[in-house]
Design a protein around this nucleic acid. Sequence first.
DNA 1: TCTTAAATATGATTTTTATCATACTATTTT
DNA 2: AAAATAGTATGATAAAAATCATATTTAAGA
Lengths: 143, 143
Amino acid sequence: MLSKSSKYAIKAVLFLAIHSSEENKVIVKDIAKPTNVPQAYIAKLLQELVKAEIVTSVRGPKGGFYLNETNLGHSIMSIVNVIDGEDKLNSCMMSLEKCNEEKPCPLHFALSDSKSQILKSLRSKTIKDVVKEVKLGASFLPL
Amino acid sequence: MLSKSSKYAIKAVLFLAIHSSEENKVIVKDIAKPTNVPQAYIAKLLQELVKAEIVTSVRGPKGGFYLNETNLGHSIMSIVNVIDGEDKLNSCMMSLEKCNEEKPCPLHFALSDSKSQILKSLRSKTIKDVVKEVKLGASFLPL
DNA sequence: TCTTAAATATGATTTTTATCATACTATTTT
DNA sequence: AAAATAGTATGATAAAAATCATATTTAAGA
Ligand code: FES
Ligand code: FES
């Protein structure tokens, strides 16, 4: 479904969304431990996210990572796109060049609707949206 | 989503379902080419499927692979289970031990319904069902 | 300005997945 | 019985994904 890397990235971003701010930056070590992701690995993923401007970083002492308002507006999908590439999730379940209604593969009708819904959901849900749910206690950050 | 191996396996099984019978066995070479899967690789996958009794094989000259009536009754999910293992598809999108309603991860509500539908669909659809659709011209085998 | 604490860049290693190769076994045909 | 044709078993290699390691850069603070 999602690569391990994408899952890690989402966990880290959501963790930051909840626990960080410009005045309250978080260093990799303090992201890695609670999210239960190998430190050096999440560091690398964070670098990609910084380049994609999904998270903000500051170097040096008192530095660390946080999400600013713009960052918070990004969709969950955008995280996946940065880490796994644009259309990893989008592709046909049976390796047709492109999944289409004119020449659907045998699994197309069984799966395509649900898959579209998943994509739609990931595209429309922003980091901020998800944080709101977590803060309301409707869902929980896994470790 | 599905591993390459699972996709290959599904393609091969559907190909057999459509083009083979006990009187009309198909040899690996003639599965590999039209399905566009490396021959030695599909051979290996087929062995697993034979062991799992999802396809039938006969050795020696005039031998090959085919699907009998029992084989045709298996679900698409059973193919995936044999190749990728039982709960690769089943797992939480954020690596919670087990995906559950009591302690849902932040993506649970966004995705869980659609995912359940996909699973349900893969579990309920038999090889025979899919073949029927293809024979009616409702869908097509990809290469 | 020097030390220190942080991210960043780069690349090596390990693990997993996919692929390739080859020797072996079973069955048919001659 | 021998030869030929099929799958089967096993393992080697290659490619990709995940993990680990380390040197470099940046900025704060003494
Ligand atoms: S054509 Fe294969 S999933 Fe759409
Ligand atoms: S708890 Fe994560 S998808 Fe259900």
